[in-house]
Design a protein around this nucleic acid. Structure first.
Length: 568
RNA sequence: CGCGGGAUGGAGCAGUCCGGUAGCUCGUCAGGCUCAUAACCUGAAGGUCGUGAGGUUCAAAUCCCACUCCCGCACCCA
């Protein structure tokens, strides 16, 4: 049987991520993983923090911490947030782990043996006062073309010209402002991508028909422009040491070791129970594994070109990705999420405002799959109020209250399905089949819309069956209708669980199902709708399972998060 | 001629690959129901699909051509 390996792009360590980050990788990966698990598939869902690189060092510096302490702390902060969002990682690792060090060095060794790595000496800017080499973007100065005073070493943001740090007039360190800079020779390793181009290109061709447009178009663009040797080492202290002579004090470029952490994190996972977990079977010569990666579009070149190059160049049978689910950007009121301008919502703030499921539902219903999509509080409150509260929440509430009121807080007995019920089951089955199809295909917007349609069917059925009228004439028939409706709540809980796992639990606990069977609802909808037997007691809700978001609240949120309601 | 993604009723989207006179959700208006959270159900109004009195075709939102506008890639950041 096929096993499913799922990875989400690794969130970078330097700070708390915002909603765009969540929807572009971790959340959809989680929904997919949960769905497959409920289908009874063997799933391994892996993620980790991406901890190396200059931004991490600088963020630590700013906080007055050493980088290792900083990363440990930030890792824990992120891990806890994701846990509260209900992200069901089998393992959430760290790219600074020992396992990643071993594997990254292993790949470097293999690539060297196979002739895909070349040593070169390049000139680098060294800041004497900072005691470190500076990457291009951390050198600022005056642009020789337009006179802009805060041009960066890689590009002038004012006139958009691409620059070399040596072009800058009055160059200085962006870290300390010191202008005590020197050019020093430094030895580095380069990955010879041009020599792997054929293999990479063939690898992309193989998947071109199946992968989303956003993925293949970005990959093709890189190939079209021609691959170049890429420097995979850096003059930094924080990172994975380069295991080569004369490379003391140098580490790998963060983008070289980060994807390898997918494999390393799987080892970390196996290390926790070595007798029953076989990391290698997931990654090495793993013919029965289907590997799916989730990421936002900025990550695509690294996952379609760089990481495959590493794996292909090793000339070992490492598992390569089978499907890449790429996402566009989520924008905030049409503009970018911005840390510096405090625009947008960060994951920790989101959880302080509303339960995780509200965010999960909106984000999946509006996932930026085919183009960028925009977050607004009015859209958010609209969907939460209408879909979660009115359609689903109210259904649960009305059924439980009506049954308890007209009968007792237990599944009522008597009556048999008639024509209406058979028709309803048929309609519902079709809807569920479509929902399942979209989930399988990772078409999350369509899946969420179909899930909503499944909920609506319940209200439709109640209107048609009208148990509140029927009961006056035929108590048994009313019992049958409500029994079906109660079973429907269970079916909804099962089907909704991948998207809104907590609300799903709430529904199940209202039904007194504390160790519920979460098996996916397949062909046999009819028996799924008869699982709850007459006499099974349930709880009457004291309050709705969702709360509406009032217009005043929306206005407040807009003000607090710098959103301009007019700009919608 | 930088690259890529878009342009469909008031808003957000589907349909475009495999052409046959447009579908969904929200909103609006009217009606129904009364079990439920001013909730649910039904119906209606509203678009000719960015522009070109362009091309192909019996037929184009859907294929071809030209153009326009928007968004992203250039502080931060995914």
């Amino acid at each position: 049987m096929t096993r499913y390996l799922i990875t989400s792009a690794l969130p970078y360590i330097n700070g708390i991520k915002h909603l765009g980050n969540l929807v572009g990788s971790m959340l959809p990966a989680d929904v997919y993983a949960r769905f497959l698990r409920q289908k009874g598939e063997d799933v391994l869902f892996i993620c980790a923090t991406d901890e190396h690189g200059t931004p991490a060092e600088l963020a630590a510096l700013e906080k007055g911490q050493d980088v290792e302490t900083f990363c440990t702390e930030q890792h824990e902060i992120q891990r806890s947030i994701y846990e509260r969002f209900g992200l069901s990682f089998d393992h959430f690792g760290r790219s600074s782990s020992e396992r990643n060090t071993e594997l990254t060095q292993h790949f470097c060794k293999k690539l060297t043996e196979n002739g895909y790595i070349e040593e070169r000496t390049i000139k680098q800017v060294y800041s004497v006062d900072d005691g470190r080499f500076l990457p291009d973007r951390y050198i600022v100065g005056t642009c020789p073309h337009c006179g802009y005073e805060a041009a960066r070493g890689d590009q002038c943001e004012n006139c958009t010209r691409v620059l070399d740090p040596t072009d800058l007039i009055n160059p200085r360190s962006a870290v300390s402002g010191s202008s005590n800079l020197e050019i020093r020779d430094s030895k580095h390793l380069f990955l010879k991508l041009p020599e792997l181009e054929g293999k990479i290109s063939a690898f992309i061709d193989e998947h071109e028909a199946e992968w989303p447009v956003v993925v293949t178009s970005i990959a093709r663009k890189w190939l079209k422009e021609g691959l170049r040797e890429r420097c995979i080492t850096r003059d930094l202290k924080w990172g994975i040491p380069v295991p080569a002579d004369g490379f003391d004090g140098k580490v790998f470029y963060v983008w070289f070791d980060a994807p390898i952490e997918y494999i390393a994190a799987t080892r970390e996972w196996a290390d926790k129970a070595p007798s029953e977990r076989d990391w290698k079977s997931w990654w090495y010569d793993a013919k029965d594994v289907r590997y799916v990666e989730f990421m936002a579009k900025d990550n695509i070149p690294f996952h379609t070109i760089m990481f495959p190059a590493t794996l292909l160049g090793s000339e070992e049978p490492w598992k390569k990705v089978d499907y890449i689910k790429g996402f566009n950007w989520l924008t905030f009121y049409g503009g970018k999420f911005s840390t510096s301008q405090k625009r947008g919502i960060f994951t920790n703030q989101a959880l302080e405002e509303f339960p995780a499921d509200y965010w999960r539902y909106w984000l999946m219903a509006n996932a930026p799959e085919n183009s960028d999509s925009s977050f607004t509080f009015s859209s958010f409150s609209g969907m939460i109020n209408k879909d979660l509260n009115d359609v689903l929440g109210n259904f649960v509430n009305r059924v439980l209250k009506m049954t308890a009121g007209k009968f007792s807080p237990a599944v009522p007995e008597g009556g048999e399905w008639g024509e209406l019920e058979n028709e309803f089951v048929k309609t519902l089955s079709t809807r569920i089949a479509d929902y399942t199809k979209y989930m399988q295909a990772m078409e999350f917007r369509k899946a969420t819309a179909e899930l909503r349609a499944v909920w609506v069917e319940g209200n439709n059925y109640l209107t048609a069956a009208a148990p509140w009228t029927v009961i006056k004439e035929d108590r048994e028939k009313a019992a049958m209708i409500l029994r079906l409706a109660l079973n429907l709540i269970r079916v909804y809980a099962v089907l909704s669980a991948p998207v809104i796992p907590n609300a799903s639990k709430d529904m199940l606990s209202l039904l007194n199902l504390n160790d519920p069977d979460m098996a996916w609802i397949g062909e046999d909808t009819a028996s799924a709708l008869q699982m709850l037997k007459p006499g099974h007691a349930f709880n009457v809700p004291e309050k709705p399972i969702f709360n509406k978001i009032m217009p005043e609240t929306v206005a407040e949120l807009c003000a607090r998060y710098g959103a301009d309601p007019e700009a919608e």
